[in-house]
Design a protein around this nucleic acid. Structure first.
Length: 255
DNA sequence: ATGGTTGCCTCGCAA
């Protein structure tokens, strides 16, 4: 089963690129982030026309996650447990075959001296608690999405310049490590030792042209999923096209 | 380089 994640930065603007990538890459499950629309405005007919079902957690203008899949989703959950007052559309989880898959959009957290950073760290801690509960099931699962976390210095073009950014701060990386250390596997890093492989390049300052990016989109696998991991990679092709998202798809195969 | 770009759908905010 091929599972992928892609922050599309507006489903409306990205629809032609998305449909083209679905046809070419043919993932069984594709987790989307930043669809930036209400569920009612999601382009369901076009997606269905390319052979995919869709589950959506929408929000006007900002955030929004979805899961596209060849087979219908089962047992859908539409929010991250742990804070009933959190109304932001950032989490969706469902079962495909025997694999539980989550599409998550972790808060950016900048500026770090505001409640946005507090919210980010709280969200990461909540995700850790939830991952702990999922691990107790001893079943295969994949937590896929835009984590807005640069795990290591080798995952950013200029670690010094980013040291105080919410994506690379010590507190952020420590909390991410705590999550991984519960027993999860970073699918891309498990199969690729090479540094400076990125999933995001800022639109500004020619970052794409200079290959100055960040690796912030991750697929974290439970032990039962990691045991079946065969391939993982980052597909840079969509980032180089016209009307590209600032993120590009990351994917893995679980046999 | 307090720069630069994109998308929301407004005249600023978020990334």
């Amino acid at each position: 089963m091929k599972v992928a994640t892609w922050n599309v930065n507006s489903i409306k603007v990205r629809l032609p690129l998305l449909l083209s990538w679905l046809d070419d890459a043919a993932p069984d499950v594709l987790c989307l982030q930043e669809i930036k629309c209400l569920a009612a405005d999601f382009p369901m007919m076009e997606i269905r026309g390319h052979g995919y079902h869709a589950e959506i957690v929408g929000q006007k203008s900002y955030n929004g996650v979805a899961i596209l899949s060849k087979e219908p989703a089962r047992d859908v959950v539409t929010s991250l447990p742990g804070d009933g007052a959190d109304g932001q559309a950032r989490y969706l989880e469902a079962t495909f075959g025997e694999v539980r898959v989550a599409s998550l959009y972790l808060p950016n957290g900048n500026p770090v001296d505001t409640e946005k950073f507090t919210y980010k760290l709280a969200w990461l801690a909540r995700l850790g608690t939830h991952a702990g509960n999922l691990l107790k099931t001893e079943r295969p699962f994949v937590l896929a999405g835009d984590y807005n976390v640069i795990p290591e210095p080798e995952d950013v073009y200029d670690p010094l310049a980013w040291r105080n950014d919410a994506l690379f701060r010590t507190e952020t990386r420590r909390s991410f490590r705590r999550l991984v250390n519960l027993g999860l596997t970073d699918a891309f890093r498990a199969l690729h030792a090479e540094p400076h492989r990125y999933s995001f390049w800022d639109y500004q300052a020619g970052r794409w042209q200079r290959d100055e990016g960040l690796r912030i989109d991750h697929l974290l696998l439970s032990p039962q999923a990691a045991d079946r991991l065969t391939v993982a990679d980052i597909d840079k092709t969509p980032r180089g096209k016209d009307k590209a998202s600032d993120h590009t798809p990351v994917w893995c195969e679980i046999n």
